[in-house]
């Protein structure tokens, strides 16, 4: 069981994020759930690329030639910056909603119903 601990962590994080996104009414909490899901995806990609006993794929004074896979790390680097950008966008939405409606509870923002 213990050798799969990173994957089990990914599953737990995914479930926590899904529950937070689906059940919470506060926009800030929904954003936190989205960030937890983002972290779960990042951890999953990093974990898939790990090689037993590998070092970081940098040749500058590396301790050994056995290295982990570089492509998942590059993809996660991309994913982190996009996560920051979308978090900033959603937080700006929250600020605008708070100024206009006085609340960030999605049930109380009735005008969104059209």
């Amino acid at each position: 069981m213990l050798w799969n601990l990173p994957f089990i962590t990914v599953v737990v994080l995914t479930l926590i994020g899904l529950v937070t996104v689906l059940l919470k009414k506060n926009i800030i909490k929904i954003l936190l759930g989205i960030n937890i899901l983002n972290s779960a995806a990042n951890l999953f990609l990093i974990t898939l690329g790990y090689r037993e006993g590998g070092v970081a794929p940098i040749f500058t004074l590396a301790p050994s030639e056995l290295m982990v896979l570089p492509t998942p790390q590059a993809l996660v680097l991309t994913s982190i910056v996009i996560g920051v950008a979308t978090s900033a966008l959603v937080l700006s939405f929250a600020i605008v909603l708070q100024k206009k409606y006085g609340t960030v509870d999605i049930d109380k923002i009735r005008r969104l119903h059209g």
């Binding site: 799969n4 599953v11 995914t14 479930l15 898939l48």
Partner: peptide
């Protein structure tokens, strides 16, 4: 259901040897 689905996938993967 979701926990069973994801857990089955997670237990079938092997950590450390892609």
């Amino acid at each position: 259901i979701m926990a069973a689905f994801f857990g089955m996938i997670a237990l079938n993967l092997t950590f450390g040897s892609p």
